[in-house]
Amino acid sequence: MHIVDGALSAPVLAGGALLAIVGIFIGLKKMDYDQLPLVGVLASVFFIASYIHLPLGFSSVHLIMNGLLGILLGWVAFPALLVALLLQVIFFGFGGLLVLGVNTLNIALPAVFMYYLCYRGIRHDSAKVAAIWGAIGGAGAIVITSIMVAFSLALSGESFVLAAKAVLPAHIPIMVVEAFVSYSAVYLIHSVKPDAIHRDLIS
């Protein structure tokens, strides 16, 4: 998921960084100072989620949960994910510094897509229907993320095309797991604290 430094070509790095900056700018505009604690806390939930490793056969996958975060935060997912990824690069060495723009874009843009796609569905009165939209959001974000990762690899050179083709199938297990986890997470929130979903957290 994290692309490392040195792999992508300069135009892809620059383009990704530019688009990510636009996204972050929109996110920061939409975020009020009053929402800082909420966004900060949700960013740390995202940070923690990526350390929850679920066993899958002989190996394990970690949750990404950008779909659900996007559904809750909308455009503000951009700055929230940027700071989380930045800390992960510097203190844990996941990913790279110059590809930070591309990585942020690849994870945050699908999150924003899911915000618009699931906006109505997630607010449905029936918990089951809302949870299904949550599952769509969770899995859909991973689908778009892996397509975008594949694209950023393929655009960087002929030799990466094979690796790019492998990205999508490699993410299918995470897609399935994420769909189920998002389903139950939304189902629980709908039953326990429906207010958290019905109200716009970021207006």
Binding site: Y183, S184, A185
Partner: peptide
């Protein structure tokens, strides 16, 4: 999923 929902 429940754990994550509760965490949220």
């Amino acid at each position: 999923g429940y754990l994550f929902g509760m965490l949220l």
